[in-house]
Design a protein around this nucleic acid. Structure first.
Lengths: 335, 335
DNA sequence: ACAAAAAATTTGCGCGCGTAAAATTTCAGG
DNA sequence: CCTGAAATTTTACGCGCGCAAATTTTTTGT
């Protein structure tokens, strides 16, 4: 950079200024630098830059499980927005492991990121670690809320999801039973459960939640095995099964197929199956899955937006905020 | 670090050595450092480290489209291996865009990574850029091969995939027609096509490949629309459809369902549908998808292994190597 | 037990840049 | 044309560390 500054005929700090904000130098010097830039090609060393800057231009993005299409889609969306805003997103997946999440937060901390978008593991997050992290680094929590942690949470209104679906299902047929994992990796499951119970009671029905065994993120498999087991134990014909999420539902659809049960709303079907999430591939199941979808665009937009707002005001002021987005019912053929 | 070294009673460079490799200092000094570490908590500044090291401990991982479950799965696998080997993987997705891939490679270049695992866009990669990158940075290409670029490629033997499947399909029923995209985002499609034609001819059948319109990475949708169109144009009953990949097949399954065609090997089915890839969710389709699966474990293991080998020998020596893994037939119910 | 070799540690140096303060240039107003 | 404030550029310094060479300590061979 020293040499490059010489070649362009200005001092090194001026060149430094230029790279931080080309508009901060006089038009004439800017022209000189840009001209030299074309002739000598030079790229500032990001490590030297980041070492000296108090805050970098990096934005950390952490999701609990990147091989889940829902998070893959959200991450893709968020990444694009960060890039467009002139930041360099740095993507991490906790792979469902608490230890990794802690490590990632430590790494992130040392990266001095301008901000972090964190979808925590939730139930299996280390509360104290996440809490302290949010206190030190401008962080927007998304997808999974953790009570009283961080300044802001952006996500979906999970009870509303279930409520919406329950109302629809009750209006159009048999009240649903609720299928969920015994130990769901994602804490939203709890809220969906609560939403289910509330909605059923509001409508004058008796809620019935079925817990199926299994843990981890292989949700389709859990749904499949649990579905098989349920079908063998109980005649599901005429009934309606609302799954805690689309991936479980996909597994249940597979189980129904295997057990020769026709799923759908048509008169010659045996039962209805519905999911929650608006999984990217949910419209290609057989039959296409009726579900409540997140507003992916809105959530990722708002998440990024709120982070930028948080980054600007350096004071960790004010009340904790929660921005919840409602889901939209996708009526398809499975229920 | 200066202060910390004082507190632990050794010189700063010794502490530096300790952090680079705890085994490189004497047992007694190591104990002193670790003791001090517990009392004063100190983390080296990664930026300062990376600025001064000629090569960092970073390993770049680039995939063309992270929201594709296949890449998500591979990336997850690879990341884990890198972490276990003591490196910090840095994950990037090109999101299917050439411009982004170029940017990512530029970023990566400035990150001085110890090595890079690159699954290029393929057809729409900028040949010159990728080629030069592989020349400058130890890089293992995977998934998509680019002729004569880089020192090594690790991937699947695509012609063998198709060949294996065609043989199976011909042995057990009607010879398949081949369904593929007009403009597939992934170059492996070409090899699968070639493998299909070769296998069919070898078996004495007339190959027939059907190109369906569409581009980009929304493969299920492309398969779905293309499937619908095909079904409307032609009676598929009694036939066998081999799709260029599982995601297309999932779309085709949806199309069949919608058009009231029963897919499967059972006698009361209308047609058979098969895919290629061993998509993570392919066993949960209705019916479960018959496919040829990549050896995910072996590929990711080998990919990482070869990178480490490449990193050790600094000379960019020798012939270009290609490590191809055979696929395994997964006989399920769809074909 | 002693010299030579090997291993570990320390000294000295510089990496490439941001940033505050000082020096310079530019520009408006009279 | 001159003065002073504002905008811009330069000077001076230090960030936190890796690395090579020099020094010290430990190990090895006889």
């Amino acid at each position: 950079m020293e040499k490059f500054a010489e070649l362009s005929g200005v001092s090194r700090p001026t060149v430094s200024k230029y790279f931080n904000d080309p508009a901060s130098v006089r038009q004439s010097t800017r022209a000189r630098i840009e001209e030299a830039l074309e002739r000598y090609e030079y790229t500032p060393n990001i490590y030297a830059i980041n070492q000296n800057r108090r805050l970098t231009k990096t934005i950390g993005v952490v999701v609990p499980y990147l091989a889940d299409p829902y998070f893959a889609e959200i991450a893709r969306n968020i990444e694009t927005r960060c890039i467009d805003a002139g930041f360099s997103p740095s993507l991490f997946s906790s792979h469902g492991r608490q230890g990794l999440e802690i490590e990632i937060l430590a790494t992130l901390r040392s990266m001095k990121p301008a901000g972090v978008l964190l979808a925590p593991l939730g139930r299996s997050s280390n509360y104290a670690v996440v809490e302290q992290f949010c206190r030190d680094v401008p962080t927007v929590l998304f997808d999974s809320n953790i009570d009283n942690v961080g300044n802001i949470f952006v996500g979906s209104d999970n009870p509303q999801f279930t409520s919406l679906m329950v109302e629809y299902l009750c209006r159009t047929g048999e009240p649903p039973l609720f299928l969920e994992m015994e130990a769901p990796p994602n804490p939203n499951a709890r809220k969906r459960h609560a939403g289910y119970v509330a909605a059923m009671e509001r409508l004058g029905h008796t809620p019935r939640a079925v817990q199926i065994p299994g843990e981890g993120w292989a949700l389709e498999e859990v749904g499949h095995l649990g579905g098989i087991e349920l079908i063998e134990k109980e005649d599901l014909r005429g009934k309606t099964v609302l799954c805690s999420n689309d991936r479980l539902a996909i597994g249940v659809l597979a189980a129904c197929y295997q057990k020769n049960l026709r799923v759908g709303i048509s008169t010659n079907s045996d039962l209805r199956v519905a999911g929650l999430d608006g999984h990217p591939f949910s419209s290609f199941t057989c039959p296409p899955l009726t579900t409540v979808t997140h507003d992916y665009e809105a959530i990722s937009e708002r998440t990024v937006e709120e982070l930028f707002r948080l980054m600007e005001r350096d004071s960790p002021q004010g009340d904790r905020e929660e921005k919840l987005f409602e889901g939209k019912l996708l009526m398809r053929e499975s229920a």
